[in-house]
Simulated assay, not measured.
Amino acid sequence: MGTETGEQPHGATVVADGFGLKGPRGWAFREVSFRAEPGALVAIEGPSGSGRTSLLLALTGRMKAKEGHAEVGGLPLPRKMAAVRRISALGQVPGVSELDPAFTVAEHLRERALLQRRFDGSVRALLRRPAERAATSRERIDEALKAAGLDLDALPKGERTSVRDLERLEALRLSIALALIGRPRLLAVDDTDLKLSDADRAEAWALLRSLAASGTTVLAVCSEAPADALRITTVPGGSEDEGEATATATTATATATATATAADADPAPAPDATDTTDTTTEEGAADALAETGRA
């Protein structure tokens, strides 16, 4: 797994080789191996508690793996977790990057644009006139809303609609739009198909396919993956001590192999005394996201 050189594609290549994470209650996942090219749609499939979210967070630099290796955009994990966080973004991940039900859609968008400007803006950008900075932020917001397929005019109160009044699919689109404001190379979404009707589920996957087709690599946790995605499937069961699981990685046209083990619930990994800079547990992931402005 070498570092990417030459002209960089927009999406990030994601490679895992014997990747594993162990917490206080056992292995969340283990021996996961696959390769996803830039612009791939990767579906992490399995029931709740099978290590899906831990794998998602580990591959985006929010949790620290303890076994094997992975690379995102040529950046090795877990050594370059902070750098991976800068090129990745989270959509909805319960307990880590959730929408505030009391906020309006407009408030969420403005807050994210301000965070983006604060944490990712160059000194030159910060010195621009307020009107110019506002126009740039508006451009990013409009671009993200269009890519996420969220029509503000179709909402009950337009951009003044509270998050609590959004339909499930609308909330999913908003969380993705917020992530896209940062123009990430890797987008990660948890519980993609949770509580969606068949029609809404089809729309959600169509949205993620369109983002992947535009060049962004997409990781999506789900209970049932579409046939055209690179599927990482976790199935709980196995040993009494650690609740082992097996996983396979497949696409419609090619097959890879992976094995994973999962505890009964996604554990938070213990900090590594040899590396305190990039150590990120699930509980501390929100702090890491706030630090980079890519919650």
Results as ranks from 00 to 15, higher is better:
Thr3Ala: 11
Glu7Phe: 07
Pro9Ser: 07
His10Lys: 08
His10Val: 06
Ala12Met: 04
Thr13Leu: 03
Ala16Met: 02
Gly26Asp: 07
Glu37Ala: 15
Gly39Val: 07
Ile44Thr: 11
Gly46Met: 05
Gly49Leu: 03
Gly51Gln: 04
Ala58Cys: 06
Thr60Pro: 04
Arg62Gln: 13
Ala65Ser: 14
Lys66His: 12
Glu67Lys: 07
Ala70Asp: 05
Ala70Tyr: 02
Glu71His: 14
Val72Gln: 06
Leu75Gln: 04
Leu77Phe: 09
Met81His: 10
Ala83Cys: 08
Val84Ala: 08
Gly91Glu: 02
Pro101Lys: 05
Thr104Gly: 12
Glu107Tyr: 04
Arg117Val: 04
Arg118Ala: 13
Asp120Glu: 15
Gly121His: 08
Arg124Leu: 15
Leu126Lys: 14
Ala131Asn: 14
Thr136Ile: 15
Arg138Asn: 12
Ala144Asn: 01
Lys146Cys: 13
Ala147Gln: 15
Ala147Met: 12
Gly149Asn: 12
Leu150Met: 13
Asp153Gln: 13
Lys157Gly: 10
Arg164Tyr: 15
Glu170Gln: 15
Leu174Ile: 03
Leu180Ala: 02
Gly182His: 06
Arg185Asn: 07
Leu187Met: 05
Ala188Glu: 04
Ala188Lys: 00
Val189Tyr: 00
Val189Arg: 00
Thr192Trp: 08
Asp198Cys: 11
Arg201Asn: 06
Ala204Gly: 04
Leu207Glu: 00
Leu207Asn: 02
Leu208Gly: 02
Arg209Val: 00
Ser210His: 03
Leu211Gln: 00
Ala212Leu: 01
Ala212Met: 01
Thr217Ala: 02
Leu219Phe: 11
Cys222Trp: 00
Ala225Val: 07
Leu230Pro: 02
Thr233Asn: 01
Thr234Pro: 03
Thr234His: 11
Gly238Tyr: 00
Asp241Arg: 13
Thr246Lys: 06
Thr253Ser: 10
Ala256Thr: 07
Ala256Ile: 02
Thr259Val: 13
Pro267Ile: 03
Pro269Asp: 05
Ala270Met: 11
Asp272Trp: 11
Thr274Ala: 15
Asp278Asn: 15
Glu283Cys: 02
Glu283Tyr: 10
Gly284Ser: 13
Ala286Arg: 14
Leu289Phe: 05
Leu289Gln: 01
Leu289Ser: 03
Arg294Glu: 04
